[in-house]
């Protein structure tokens, strides 16, 4: 359940259906953008025309993800996080790393995906995440994140 839908992205696009990006219309581009097939910079009018500067900024903020994150599709919005620790206690990798975490307590270990620091969850080792390996279907952290701070985007379908 991504927090962002194609229509919300569409609203931030030029909505001229010029076709310069290679997609038939802006809605298709929005879908492609969400699916990770296109990048914000692939829309020429958005970059070239000054009147879209605000929209471009907003879009770049939404889609600002590092290459590392893209491999798992895991996007973390820190400003929404309340530090409840649900992600730490549900993540199968975190639970396997420490019996304390499995029992609901905080623990300091290095081989975990999430850790709560300073009242916010923090992604410590993204490479430990199951989604970066074979198990692409795991999205338990997103399911248990009540605030919508963790979002999993389906990259590449």
């Amino acid at each position: 359940m991504p927090a962002l839908n194609a229509f919300q992205v569409y609203k931030l696009l030029p909505q001229t259906n010029c076709g310069k990006c290679g997609e038939p219309n802006c809605m298709a581009f929005a879908v492609a953008l969400l699916g990770g097939k296109k990048k914000v910079e692939d829309c020429p009018p958005l970059i070239e025309e000054a009147k879209y500067a605000d929209k471009l900024k907003e879009l770049q903020k939404i889609f600002a993800v590092s290459d590392e994150v893209e491999s798992t599709g895991l996007v973390y919005h820190e400003e929404k996080c309340t530090g409840c620790g649900n992600c730490v206690m549900v993540c199968p990798e975190d639970v396997a790393a420490s019996p304390l975490i499995a029992g609901g307590k905080g623990d300091v270990c290095d081989n975990v995906v999430f850790r709560v620091e300073n009242g916010k969850a923090k992604i410590v080792n993204l490479e430990k995440c199951r989604r970066s390996g074979k198990e692409k279907t795991c999205r338990i952290c997103e399911m248990f994140c009540g605030t919508g701070a963790i979002e999993i985007r389906m990259v590449g379908g």
């Binding site: 620790g85 206690m89 549900v90 499995a102 029992g103 609901g104």
Partner: peptide, 18 residues
């Protein structure tokens, strides 16, 4: 609880393994 006691679910009720 996610407003009043943020760690309620993750520490004591729904998530931890007992």
């Amino acid at each position: 609880p996610s407003h009043s006691h943020p760690r309620h679910l993750s520490r004591y009720t729904t998530i931890p393994r007992g």
